[in-house]
Design a protein around this nucleic acid. Structure first.
Ligand SMILES: [Mn+2]
Ligand SMILES: [Mn+2]
Ligand SMILES: [Zn+2]
Ligand SMILES: [Zn+2]
Lengths: 139, 139
DNA sequence: ATGTAAATGAAAACGCTTCTCATTACTATT
DNA sequence: AATAGTAATGAGAAGCGTTTTCATTTACAT
């Protein structure tokens, strides 16, 4: 993933788009709210508006560069599209996000859609629980 | 499900609560937004505020009478808790909601949580697609 | 019937996201 | 390199579903 991908997506190469892409790829973290990205920019001294962050992330989504998740109800979480499809397991205590792939579940989902007469376009699987670390911390 | 369930839940038996429960159980439809419930009440001539609808649905959720889903990002969808746990398959064209149960997936989810060190509390599985009817309607 | 705490409706506030619009920055062309 | 033309940006307003506030009403135990 490089800035050239921005051009490939038919988007002009602008400073906000380059910086936002950098943050998504450089960080050890993989899942960001728009606010997360915005704060990262501010911390780096970039004066980029929150509206632009939302706009650019939405454009990146349309271009297939990032995916948008709705882990809890309230807000969107964005993730760079690198590596294969995967699902998520989330800690309800500390907010940690882990990833997993299960081919059996993937296949079963297709079977279910087919049996129900649906032409499947997408699916969402979130597992919620208490992570190992949080289980240690006083129940 | 009867009005006595409202009392069992430790809630006073009030007209809004009775009417809302009636709508949830009488309708052929099973999945309602708060607005859906509100409009049903208005159509029946009941003058119940939208704030009360939200309050009551949230109370019903806490009492275990209804579940809340977040099918698309924007808003909550409520469903009476009758019958066993199930997951959902949704038409992205017409909004139809179908239900399914798959014990293999249920078990695999538990296995995944365990393997990841999580104590599972909940899970969400939505399959999105185009339903049989909508596939007929010109691509 | 009466008292008291809980529930209600209307409107305001809320949090996240999108829109508006005047200004600025890209890019292609000269 | 200067210019023109179009797309992108930032600030703030607006939008939307939902929650909160608060004065009034209601349920229910006495
Ligand atoms: Mn992920
Ligand atoms: Mn259902
Ligand atoms: Zn945790
Ligand atoms: Zn359909």
């Amino acid at each position: 993933m490089e800035s050239s991908d921005i051009k490939k997506a038919g988007l002009k190469l602008t400073l906000p788009r380059v910086k936002i892409l950098e943050i998504l790829e450089k960080s050890e973290r993989r899942h960001f709210s728009a606010e997360d990205v915005y704060r990262n920019l501010i911390d780096e001294g970039e004066e980029i508006g929150l509206a632009t962050v939302y706009r650019v992330l939405t454009q990146f989504e349309s271009a297939g560069l990032v995916s948008r998740h709705h882990f809890d109800s309230g807000h969107s979480v964005f993730e760079l599209n690198q590596g294969a499809h995967h699902d998520h397991i989330l800690c309800v205590r500390c907010g940690k996000v882990d990833e997993f792939v299960d081919e059996t579940i993937e296949k079963l989902q297709h079977d279910i859609a087919e049996r129900a007469g649906y032409q499947m376009t997408d699916h969402v699987l979130y597992i919620y629980g208490i992570c190992a670390d949080c289980q240690k911390d006083t129940g």
